[in-house]
Amino acid sequence: MTQQYNKPLPHPQGESDVYWQKAKQHELWLRRCDECGKAYFYPRDISPCCFSKRTSWMKASGRARLHTFAIAHRAPTPEFAADVPYVPAIVDLEEGPRMATNIVGIGEPTPEKLRIGMPLVVTFEDVSDTIALPKFRPA
């Protein structure tokens, strides 16, 4: 990090502390509902599938497929001006849940470089002393 990172950072909450601590160790962890066995995103103590308190943490494989993407050409706020064009994306994790992320590692993004369904793998961007953002690159 040569420059000060000035984009919005997540503010971990009690029930997401583990998620962000693991991310800082470059691991992607998910919550799982032990009532039905499904993984879910985003992390919360009571599961949204069964509204159950029987939940646990699990390490994700980090493999995903591209569900959809856009290419942001106009910076939504000045902090993103240096990033455009960038790729907001939604990915289907191998374990089932869907999450928001960015696709990186493709150079200048163009629609031709991105194919819905393409296999992806997680990669982590260290953005502060406590936060690493899970992003995805082509597998």
């Binding site: 984009k7 919005p8 950072l9 997540p10 503010h11 971990p12 909450q13 997401s16 995103f41 985003y42 856009a70 942001a72 106009r74 939504p76 706020t77 993103f80 990033d83 960038y86 907001p88 999450m99 928001a100 992320t101 960015n102 953005v127 953002l133 992003k135």
Partner: peptide, 13 residues
Amino acid sequence: QFEVPYGFLGAPI
């Protein structure tokens, strides 16, 4: 926490 850090900001995106 889970969208804005990725530049999910504003309706067009």
